[in-house]
Amino acid sequence: MISINTELRRKILEHNEDIKKCYQCSTCSASCPVLRYDPDFNPRILIIKALYGSEDTLKSKEFWKCLSCDRCNERCPQGVNPYNVLLKLKNFLFSQNLAPKERIDARELIIATGFSYPISSAVNRKRESIELEALESIGEELKKIVGIEGAE
């Protein structure tokens, strides 16, 4: 039995009507480097569940495995853009406080410092040893401009 989350379904379809064109041909799955190594990750199945707004999808940790390589977007014959559908799902989870902690931490690091890597003294010693300038945190401006849409 599939239980449907209508809010999720609405969110997914909001900017992505093209997902309705999916005819489950599996081109995305056949092209996916993750599925080749890990059969638990199957873009075709994630797409059909997303289209239904299946609650199942929200409990699944599978789609965080996506490598964001864009091969499925490139090859999809229907213009569904499976990678972007997964992005919408992840964004929805983040807005519901259901994103994995490491994703939230990674986001916070960028907002706080401007960089996706921690700027340690070891990093700066290495830079200075090859005559590059040390890095300084430049996140101040980002704190003023980030935040999900509408939450002004």
Binding site: W64, F94, G114, I138, G147
Partner: peptide
């Protein structure tokens, strides 16, 4: 004074902020 572009992980949390940055 560029910051992180930002990357696909950041986009996976919130596309709107990704666009802003």
């Amino acid at each position: 004074a560029f910051t992180c572009c930002p990357n696909a992980d950041f986009r996976s949390t919130d596309e709107y902020s990704w666009l802003v940055v």
